[in-house]
Computed example of a mutant assay.
Amino acid sequence: MFRDLLQSNAKGASKERKSISPTLRSDIYTTIDQSKAWLAGTRGQAGDGVSYAPMLNTIKKHFPHATIGLEALGQIEVEVGVIVGGITNMVLEMSKWEALGGGMAMRTWLDTLVNVYATIPQSSKKEIIARGIVRGINQNTDYSLMTKEFTARIQIISCLKSLCPKIYGAGSEESRQAEAMLSSKLI
């Protein structure tokens, strides 16, 4: 349901734009910083239905149709999926215009996700956040935004493929399934 909003808007935005948004780079890094506190629960928390608003507003600036419906408020997996997918789309959009800069931003973004995820105490909420992260990467991301430059593209794909084993553990069933789904989208 949300994937269509993020993808249809991302495709429309990529057709209309003739150059990179002047604030895209700073918006990416600001939103990444905001997501750290949000996921870790130090400023608001995933699932509270409100504290994702600053991140969503920034994402909407670049992809105006990205939204979280009222029926999804308080659903951690959906909220995390939309925010993760939105930030990932912003990074992929940047990679179209600045291939290596986009690759570096993707590395920063995915390292942030892994590091913040590692700090979350073990609980059922941690499992839901993991599913939300993978959902954002696999279902809410528009890979048509990615650069066509070979070297940067390989760097981005490599970063993306390394995420699931770091979240679920190398060789786990969840990791293999998420990686297979991601691979099917990137081929």
Rank of each mutant, 00 (worst) to 15 (best):
A13T: 11
L6S: 15
V114W: 00
S124Y: 14
A130P: 09
M181V: 06
G102C: 06
I20E: 15
V91N: 00
Y117W: 07
M146C: 04
C164G: 08
K36Y: 10
E127R: 11
W109S: 02
D111A: 01
I83S: 05
Q45R: 13
W109N: 02
G81K: 03
F63Q: 11
W38F: 14
P54A: 09
I129V: 15
A46P: 11
L100S: 12
L182S: 02
A152E: 04
V84R: 02
C164P: 10
E173Q: 12
S35A: 14
L70F: 14
K185H: 10
I68Q: 01
T119G: 03
L110C: 01
W97Q: 07
R3L: 14
N140H: 06
K125R: 13
L113E: 02
S162L: 00
G86A: 07
Q139K: 06
T42Q: 08
T147H: 01
K96L: 10
T112N: 11
D48F: 13
I59R: 02
S95Q: 02
I87A: 04
K185I: 09
E174N: 15
F150W: 09
Y29A: 08
A53S: 12
A37E: 11
A118M: 06
V80T: 08
M104I: 10
G132V: 09
M94E: 15
W38G: 03
T108Q: 08
T151D: 07
I128E: 15
A178N: 04
I137Y: 01
G171Y: 04
T67K: 06
K125D: 15
A40G: 11
S19F: 09
L100D: 15
V114N: 02
Q34M: 14
A180P: 07
L39M: 12
I20T: 09
E149Y: 01
N9E: 15
S19M: 13
L113I: 02
H62C: 08
N57H: 10
S35G: 05
M94Q: 13
R107S: 13
V134G: 09
L6N: 14
E93N: 10
V114P: 00
S35F: 13
K61N: 12
I76C: 07
G69W: 12
E16Q: 07
S124W: 14
M90Q: 10
S172W: 07
